[in-house]
């Protein structure tokens, strides 16, 4: 018992930090694991909903990772998916209610996609792959890291889509009016979901170009 406590690693050990940083790039849930694409396409037309979505996923993922990690020894493996779903659904409903209470208009923009966090593959994937076999603290960090990687991609995609699609960032016009007077126009395709897929493709392209080891054979 006492030996174990002595060997306990510090809270922010190298290994634990990796849990947070790796999903940001080399093990990114969207661009490398290719999970959670659906919501990434749906909520990235504007920056604000994308960020709110990122935060929501972070809360849900971190919290359910911790809960599942605490319960991991008590969950019979045959019904573990159902248990995981119940935990995720609880968290999602909590987040949804909070959003509805405090940022109603954004919650309306995100519409069904907050509810659909339940089916977001990233969350189920992390619960299965990590929380079921790790202690609460690393599970928490893993949740934060993966959700941060997810949000990062969402924010990049949303940045370009809002900039070129609406000429705004966070709803404020950033492309000067004089450009419009010269004949510049917003790109209507950027607001449509196909362009989110293409933007995502470009991010994957750039990332693979920078990190050759990620290229699939």
């Amino acid at each position: 018992m006492s030996a174990e406590t002595k060997e306990r690693e510090p809270l922010f050990s190298q290994k634990n930090l990796k849990l947070v940083t790796k999903p940001l790039n080399l093990n990114n849930p969207i661009t490398v694991q290719v999970l959670g694409i659906c919501s990434a396409l749906a909520v990235t037309a504007k920056l604000k909903p994308a960020i709110v979505m990122g935060i929501s996923v972070m809360v849900v993922l971190a919290a359910s990772n911790v809960v599942i990690s605490l319960l991991r020894k008590g969950i019979p493996s045959r019904i573990r998916i159902i248990v995981q779903l119940v935990v995720i659904a609880t968290m999602v409903i909590l987040v949804d209610q909070v959003l509805k209470a405090f940022v109603y208009d954004i919650s309306k923009q995100l519409s069904v996609f907050v509810g659909l966090i339940i089916t977001n593959c990233i969350i189920m994937g992390r619960l299965e792959a990590f929380a079921m076999s790790n202690k609460p603290w690393p599970a928490f960090l893993d949740g934060i890291g993966n959700a941060a990687g997810y949000s990062l991609i969402l924010i990049i995609v949303a940045f370009f889509r809002e900039l070129f699609g609406s000429g705004t960032l966070f709803g404020l016009q950033v492309i000067p009016q004089s450009f419009y007077e010269l004949g510049y126009k917003n790109n209507g395709l950027m607001i449509l979901p196909p362009m989110a897929l293409i933007t995502l493709g470009v991010i994957i392209w750039v990332q693979r170009y920078k990190n050759r080891e990620l290229i699939e054979k």
Binding site: N187, G188, L189, M190
Partner: peptide, 10 residues
């Protein structure tokens, strides 16, 4: 097609 959806005004 790109123009049709991106710049319908033109």
């Amino acid at each position: 097609a790109f123009l049709f959806f991106a710049y319908p005004g033109d």
